[in-house]
Computed example of a mutant assay.
Amino acid sequence: MTEHEKYQEHIRHTHDAFCKTVIRHAAIDAARSIRSRRKREISLEYLIEEKHYPFSTTDKYFAEQSGMTSYPLFVCGQMVLLESPELAAALSALSQMEQEIIFLYYFQRLTHVFLQGTPQHNTWKFYGEQTRDRVLAYAVELTGKVRGVIRGNLYELDYPQHFRHVAAEAVQADNIILHYEKGGREQPAGLYFDGRPDPKLGAFLLYEAKPNEPEHLRELLRQEQKGRAQLAPGDFKAHVTALHDGIILAEAQRIVAGLKDLSAPNSPNKTHFMVKLSPYFVQIASSKDTDRLFSMLPYKSLCFTGMKDRHGLYAVIGKDENRDKEVRRPRASIRRQLSETKQAAAPKKAPARTKKNELEV
């Protein structure tokens, strides 16, 4: 046996011994884990026979719901079923205009975005006035609850256009109404309040802005609802796919624009141009998304890498790279096109026949 063969045999025996040691310790850890779990667990058979715990239970939720009484309220041509007779009586005593405002706000979820000075209005305007970020905005309309699942409609909004619409049409609200456990009180919107209990009215519940022109607010909310009702239904899956593709494209365009704006190499050793990948994109992107982003950037010397003493991921190219390029559009998959063409041209097969077996007792 040569020296090389002896050395290979030695390496093989060493590796076998190492593997045996790892497997033995893994078996010891598994045995310890099983032993520890058995000390804490109690068998189902012991609970049933010794402790006499019931093996199953039957809920009575549907039986209780069948006996409940609903109180209908007709607002804006729709019927709302209320379970509380006190709430139904209180809403029926209000004027038609007040009923419509409450219906559009609480039941249709049209928020205080159209009331000036409210947190919702200020937040909606902030992203249009103070930032240049791309904003995805949606209007959510809850339609009900089916078997424990909340259902509703999702409406995509053009945020820049809707922001200008809100800024132009918002109604002033100089006063706010503070609701407490035993009543409410009105005060100017600029007056500070901290939500503490009132000595006479009890615990604080919520507050709402009081519009100076309630008729204008009602008409504004009705127009918003009417405009959404005329929209054509869309494909949610296709929308999510397009949204996902748009995020990758927007990140590629941002990196290309950032590299063009650099006048000199900005890497630590001044030999490369680099732009930091968006931390928001890095958090939500998968490895396939990163690969797609890489393929859309038109640089031969491109690489994604981290930097010493710096956080995040960077797109780095050489200083001699031509930066006057545009984003490389992804090519359509030829395999997918051939597959779709083949499926469209293939004749539909007749359903397979099945035998009906009868069971004799």
Rank of each mutant, 00 (worst) to 15 (best):
P211K: 09
P211S: 09
P211C: 06
N212I: 05
N212L: 05
N212V: 14
P214V: 01
P214D: 06
P214Y: 03
E215W: 03
E215P: 03
E215I: 08
E215F: 02
E215C: 02
H216L: 11
L217T: 11
R218G: 02
E219T: 09
L220C: 10
L220R: 06
L221G: 09
L221P: 01
R222W: 14
Q223T: 12
E224R: 09
E224A: 03
Q225T: 13
Q225E: 12
K226W: 14
K226R: 14
K226M: 15
G227L: 08
A229L: 12
A229E: 15
Q230T: 14
Q230R: 12
A232Q: 09
P233I: 02
G234V: 00
D235T: 05
D235A: 05
D235N: 08
K237T: 12
K237D: 04
K237E: 14
A238V: 07
A238H: 03
H239E: 08
V240Y: 07
V240N: 05
V240Q: 12
T241Q: 10
T241I: 12
A242G: 10
L243T: 13
D245F: 10
G246R: 04
G246W: 06
I247V: 14
I247N: 10
I247A: 13
I248F: 11
L249S: 10
L249W: 07
L249H: 05
A250G: 05
A250M: 02
E251W: 02
A252F: 05
A252H: 00
Q253N: 04
R254K: 11
R254G: 06
I255H: 00
I255N: 05
A257F: 07
G258Q: 11
L259Q: 02
L259A: 07
K260R: 13
D261T: 05
D261Q: 03
D261H: 00
S263K: 09
A264R: 14
A264G: 00
P265T: 07
P265W: 12
P265K: 04
